[in-house]
Design a binder for these strands. Sequence first.
DNA 1: CACCTGACATAAT
DNA 2: AATTATGCCAGGT
Length: 113
Amino acid sequence: MKQKELTNFQRRVYAMTSQIPRGKVTTYRDLGKAIGCRSPRAVGQALKRNPFAPKVPCHRVIAANGSLGGFHGEKEGVQIARKRRMLTEEGVKFLKDGSIDLRCLWLPSCEAA
DNA sequence: CACCTGACATAAT
DNA sequence: AATTATGCCAGGT
């Protein structure tokens, strides 16, 4: 653990992520848009660090193309398998293609408004 | 302080 | 349609 303090940017990301209701998911882009960031990469970086592991449901954040993106720094592997299972347990459905069910998409702007 | 990296996205080839 | 290149923002070295 290197970074002891969090930057304002990460606080926004964690705040929004923690506001995601159970059984819902959001994308890096929409989340970034909600916090005023046009770069989904910055959002992903903040989540990948995830200093609040169980506190911040980072597994509820996915890529805009419907992919899970990554989890725990792994774009594919056991971590991704767990992420997919966790979402399924929360009620999120997946398509045969492996993409997430857009019906469960949650727009953070709804809370920001 | 400058350069590189990264859980993405979009445009161009 | 698939792959490559560039853009973007913040953090790390």
